[in-house]
Write a protein that binds this DNA or RNA. Structure first.
Lengths: 345, 345
DNA sequence: TTGAAAGCGCTAACAG
DNA sequence: CTGTTAGCGCTTTCAA
């Protein structure tokens, strides 16, 4: 830390400062090969003294190895994705690999562009949300020649590996639970997102399971943008005005579900006696509400960790060929205080 | 898209496929220099046909330019930071620059390590949360020879540029507002985070402004981990048990504030008549609560956008030297429904 | 245990 | 408008 360099320092600078060849300096800094303790100390001291930071660009070009993992997700505004990122971070901690995040805003063309940019850094692997991609995106994924893990959804065929839950199944399970409790006049409230395939699949699974019992959704509403909690309140109010006979509301996420719950409590409506409620995601927030919303855990953190493991394995020197390429997690349904209506034997 | 390459494609492959020199292919792909329309088309067609993705590693090494901006934040779990990231994303959209995010978990040594790794990619700039860093971190920042923007806090001296709000001032402003409304017996509830300097500074500003009026905080409580909303409920309950005379609760963030609000409403306590409440952040969530919590906007998105602008300017070919290196934003205080107690003239 | 040479894939700078 | 030459800063490989 003696001078402020206009030109970034290079190995050569360190080499000259300590009178050891560039090659040996490089070996010390990478802890590779055998270097005598004395020269190592000398090199380390010089590097620290100068404030040398290695140039990974040059290193990666020379070694043809890049310690980056591309992570591509639709959004950061929805807490779901930060939690997956935390899982990936945890899974990659204490390994040489580092996640690099790209955000698509749920737009396929943006996804394509983000992937292209990330691939141009020649990462060691790709973790990407969802199974639905444009043709070009799939082609890039296929041709990249690196491990690819598609996460969060397992209803479809992965390019390479996938880790997630079946949202169709999640929808079906919730529907069955609702019917089992005797609810029959059901409303659905969700996001207006044609490109949120996971929400769509939950909805499809949900209606499918209802249909099997001869039941149809009686009312539905979709929103986009704004405060989810507030939207939940408003939409619930509006829906119950339109369809006062409903005895259950299924929300596509916990945030609007919480809004609905708060509205009903304000109105003094008996939950779950008169109306039952369920959301999706198991967001931590819910713990503080006056009543526990029925919901289903999406295994977000675990998905991130598992995806990281797969990339790690695939890019290790001796990959375990037996490690499964498809991991389907089982979301747990928690009924909370807003779903049970009957006494049960 | 004809074959799946074991070895990633290079410029040379494209060059051979279309019979144009590597240099010209490179120019076409970078849209730099003049290339005849016909050759351009030929090159583009070949590149697409092969599925060529340029190698930025090599490109950056050769051009000595890297279109990456290092962004270093403490956490992704707190919605504050994703919102800042959204601002940065927005500010960098449609520019060649791309953010790369690193997370420190509020730990100085992790911050040091993350910064080191990011600098080893020779980014075009650094955006880093906070003004408090280890000696080594400051040294790296100083010697990196690239624009550095420290964000979210302006109570201190930046290495280079800073964008944010004064948390001390924010604390003072809230204290003054509370006193003006006639509250006098004040409790504080916050996070137990010795390394969250912004929360600490708000607290300091708050107590300082109270002290000026001869008032001291009567009770305080700190938490860590868990659902903030739930913690808010519990801590509020406990504090009012301990100190039933309190007439105001200041929360270090809106989430625990919302928990406190829900608790008080459950108990049928008059808010803001008997007890006033205020939080911090202006989280979108609040809009859906039964009552609007008094709070203060932290200008998260704007901070991100402004920081992006500074990096952009500094790394442009003709930087505007007049662009200020310090941007202090003014958080707006919204009193909501939980602060006003007096009728005012 | 250390060093020298070659080259990773691309682009700056210049020449044609 | 197009091509040639010479590296960018590091690591691989081979030799000492």
């Amino acid at each position: 830390m003696s001078q402020l360099p206009k030109r970034p320092l290079t190995l050569r600078d360190v080499s000259e400062a300590c009178g050891v060849s560039e090659m040996t300096v490089s070996r010390v800094l990478r802890k590779s090969g055998d270097v005598s303790a004395t020269t190592r100390e000398r090199v380390l001291a010089a590097a620290k003294e100068l404030g040398y930071v290695p140039n990974q660009i040059a290193g990666s070009l020379a070694s043809q190895r890049v310690n980056l993992v591309a992570v591509i997700i639709p959004s950061l505004s929805n807490m779901v994705f930060p939690e997956v990122l935390n899982g990936i971070n945890a899974g990659l901690d204490d390994t040489p690999l580092q996640p690099v995040v790209g955000v698509t805003g749920y737009r396929p063309e943006k996804e394509e562009q983000v992937l292209y940019e990330m691939l141009s850094w020649r990462p060691s692997g790709v973790i990407i949300a969802g199974l639905e991609h444009s043709e070009a995106t799939r082609a890039m994924l296929l041709n990249a020649g690196i491990p690819v893990v598609e996460i969060m959804d397992t209803d479809g065929n992965p390019v390479d590996a996938m880790v997630g839950i079946s949202h169709r199944q999640a929808g079906r399970d919730m529907a069955r639970e609702i019917l089992r409790e005797g609810y029959e006049r059901i409303g659905f409230l969700g996001t207006k997102m044609p490109l949120d395939h996971r929400a769509r699949k939950r909805f499809e699974g949900f209606t499918e399971a209802l249909a099997k019992e001869g039941i149809e959704i009686e009312d539905r509403a979709f929103y986009s943008g704004g405060s989810a909690l507030l939207k939940g309140r408003e939409m619930t109010r509006d829906m119950l005005e339109r369809s006062p006979d409903l005895d259950f509301l299924y929300f596509s996420n916990d945030m609007i579900g919480a809004g609905g719950l708060l509205h009903l409590l304000d109105e003094g409506i008996d939950v779950p006696g008169q109306i039952g409620l369920a959301g999706f995601n198991g967001v931590e927030l819910l713990a503080g509400l006056p009543r526990q919303l029925a919901t289903m855990d999406a295994c977000r953190r675990e998905i991130g960790e598992e995806a990281a493991k797969i990339i790690l394995n695939a890019s290790s020197s001796e990959p375990d060929a037996d490690l499964p390429k498809t991991v389907i997690m089982n979301p747990t349904l928690s009924v909370g205080d807003t779903l049970r209506r009957k006494k049960r034997g």
